[in-house]
Design a protein around this nucleic acid. Structure first.
Lengths: 334, 334
DNA sequence: TTGTAAGCGTTATCAA
DNA sequence: TTGATAACGCTTACAA
């Protein structure tokens, strides 16, 4: 690797002058500048980022801790990464389990990440991850952090700096959409332990003075199975729903498969709305109307929070968290 | 951050001794060792990786250049990352377009990555990416590299170090599977410009002495549209196929949607095989029989190639490339 | 307008 | 068995 020293020797100037010319800080004679730039270009000089970081104590790396990647996280990560890159930062992703130091779990992954002295850290909640503990560790280390879309139990905006997603909002839009299509027996199919979507469903049915029909799938583990098995609950419900808001797109796939097997038509016999707007939603049959998370916005918001923290801006009046709305994507299943 | 110096002051030993004790290189008195370790633990000492890299010139970072993440790349990345992490390396992912330096495209992304002095680089081919040029740049910089699953045009194993995927192999398995189920009019639905799957299809139909039926979808852009529109080709084909190997799972979704609309049953009226084994394949209706890439194996192979190159092992007799087979996953659509 | 010298935290050389 | 000391490549006071 060619260093400042090499360029200095080539041009006859001192390291300091070369450095000044390259970073254009301080006074440099135009002619000098010219020669230095030309030499650097010719030699292929590139600043050693590690040396710079060592000296300045400033890192331009943002760490991300997550368990497994999936389509939904990618969508958020993409705009997150892009926003940060445009601000001169690079993003390092560290996967947690099952690698790393399994005995220490995600906390160990975080320690590994901290060894790299990141400028900030973003966390994707994962089953078995103790967000408070990780956040505490980061605060204690003086490293800015943000959490992507934490579970409802962390909804108190005060305790955890996060970008939250208002799932209920999109579900309300969906219920209203179904109502406007003429449906009056609108069911919710999903677990009742997770209130995030259910709250929206209940609020909007109340608002529209409809009788809520909750088809509880908490008995089943997998999302697809919940949809498939939930089909039986649907058949047994009285009155039989003419529309269903489903917990997720994958669960909706299970329900669709069940309905197809039963010879029921979608949306003629029953309208179905999913949640997540995964790729499957647009390529399944019929193409699924679904509630979409504003993934791009989420990523940008998370990046902005970190950038503001890094530059030492004071916390906004509303705190370091932000909540974004969901929206409805109408396709052929309603 | 607490440094070697801090631990040295705390224990009264010199920096060098502390360093020796911590890295257990050279002779250190057991008692000394004990005390140093205890102090380091108590103070929360963590080695500064940037300083170490600066001094040794050795980096433990592996860079990855890609355009956009998707489900299939994730699957490969996961085992890639895990294998490398277990060997003590961390993986940095840099997304190319549309961020970075747009005027320079992926080449610019690579330069940005090189600024971080990675120990090795992995490339995910992308439309508009010049693999030869990037590989040349890396070779010139003396940085080991590997390419994930390059296009067929780079199939000469000599010119590009890569993990290649034998798509034709899985297609042959699929055709044979369909044959064994009694199908005799087995079609291939997809573009003819891409030979990777088609070669396998033609080889196996020849082998089984079947008449090949190629439904060319090169006229359409999107994968889903190709499947949907390809349905017309299917209807018009004479003889009408009783089984179809489709280019991809998404294209198969398009075909399935078309068949459903036509009231044709799968697999009773026509059997359908996809390619890729995406999530959709297991949750669509009917669950799709498909050809799966050995993503885990691909990731591990790529990691192993890089690790071997980094440790200076001589190139294997077969060269630095490796080719892995595909396999068939039978579900309900056949 | 340019140069000298110190220092970031680590590793490596050499001597004690 | 341990300790000075230099060096990696960069930035930054401070001089000249």
């Amino acid at each position: 690797m060619v260093s400042l020293k090499d360029v200095a020797e080539k041009t006859g100037f001192s390291i300091r002058t070369v450095n000044r010319a390259l970073k254009s800080d301080g006074y440099v004679a135009p002619a000098t500048r010219e020669r230095v730039l030309a030499a650097a270009e010719r030699l292929g000089y590139r600043a050693n980022l590690k040396a710079r970081a060592l000296r300045t104590g400033l890192s331009y790396e943002i760490g991300v801790v997550l368990g497994t990647m999936d389509e939904l996280k990618i969508a958020k990560m993409t705009s997150f990464e892009q926003t940060l890159r445009e601000a001169g930062f690079s993003v390092d992703v560290l996967f947690g389990l099952p690698g790393g130091d399994p005995t220490r779990g995600y906390q160990g992954t975080l320690e590994t990440l901290l060894d790299r002295q990141p400028a900030a850290v973003a966390l994707f909640p994962e089953h078995g991850m103790s967000l408070e503990r990780m956040a505490m560790r980061l605060v204690q280390s003086g490293i800015p952090y943000v959490v992507f879309d934490p579970e409802a139990e962390y909804m108190d905006p005060g305790e955890l700096h996060a970008v939250r997603i208002d799932r209920g909002h999109g579900v309300r839009l969906a219920v209203r959409h179904l109502f406007e299509l003429g449906h009056r027996n609108i069911a919710y199919l999903g677990g009742v332990a997770d209130r995030s979507r259910l709250d929206g469903y209940e609020a909007e049915t109340r608002n529209l003075e409809l009788e809520p029909i909750v088809l509880d799938t908490d008995a089943w583990e997998g999302e697809f199975e919940s949809g498939w098995n939930g089909g039986e609950l649907f058949l047994a419900a009285d009155p039989r729903p003419d529309a269903v808001q489903v917990f997720s797109d994958v669960t909706a796939m299970g329900l669709l498969a069940f309905l197809h097997e039963q010879g029921l038509r979608v949306p003629e016999d029953v309208a179905v709305v999913g949640f997540d707007d995964r790729q499957i939603a647009s390529v399944c049959w019929p193409a699924l109307t679904t509630v979409a998370m504003p993934n791009h916005e989420v990523g940008v918001a998370a990046a902005e929070i970190l950038l503001a923290k890094i530059t030492g801006e004071p916390a906004p009046a509303a705190g370091w968290s932000r909540t974004v709305a969901t929206r409805l994507k109408v396709r052929d299943s309603t």
